Simulated scan of single mutants.
Amino acid sequence: MFEVREMQDGTIYTVNLAQRHCDCGHFQVERLPCRHVLACCANQRLDWQVYVHDVCKMSQICKVYRGEFVPMGDPSTWDRYEGAKVIANWTLRRATKGRPKSTRYLNEIDSWDMRGPRRCTVCGREGHSRSRCPQCTGPSSAGGH
């Protein structure tokens, strides 16, 4: 366990080489020795390369490219590509224009049969509404009011 003090601002960082941990966070995230780890290694005459994670070593990187790459060949011999199969997800659809559909559960009070026939508010007759009233025909009632 080491304490490393920054020369610029005096911030103290704790370095634990056994657990590969430094307070700055770079050692854990990048899996490469940060400058605080390098300072500890230089002070104790330790090999800093020991603290480089195996994933970052050249021997491991060379193993990635050791495998054989098969050439693609002539494009005329390739299997025909039919395209991607698209399956619609209806939950991601945009809302349609207009008034949203009601999600309320209807009961017997909401039944049209129990309300009785529709009455016009202009003439009071049954069977039509204000917007279809025969008394309101003409150019002045084009707006419906």
Rank of each mutant, 00 (worst) to 15 (best):
T14R: 09
E3R: 13
Q49N: 14
Y81S: 05
P100V: 09
D79Q: 12
S59E: 14
V15T: 06
Y81F: 15
H53G: 10
K97L: 07
G116Y: 05
E3V: 05
I12R: 12
G116P: 01
A88N: 07
D110P: 10
K57Q: 13
K63C: 13
D23L: 02
R104I: 08
V86G: 00
G127I: 05
T96Y: 04
T121I: 08
R31Q: 15
H26P: 00
A42F: 06
H128C: 03
C34W: 00
R94S: 11
M7P: 07
S141E: 06
S131E: 09
R80A: 08
K63R: 14
K57G: 05
H145P: 10
G98T: 02
F69G: 12
E126D: 07
N43M: 10
K63F: 04
S140F: 11
Q60I: 00
L38C: 10
L106N: 05
S59A: 15
D23F: 00
E6R: 15
V52F: 00
R35G: 01
S141F: 13
K101T: 13
V64A: 08
E6T: 08
G73P: 09
L92E: 15
C133I: 09
V52H: 02
R80G: 00
A42K: 15
N43C: 10
D74P: 10
A95K: 14
R31H: 10
L17N: 05
L106W: 09
P139L: 13
V4M: 02
M58G: 01
R94D: 12
E126S: 12
C136I: 08
K101Y: 07
S111E: 07
D47G: 08
V70P: 02
V37D: 08
Y105E: 15
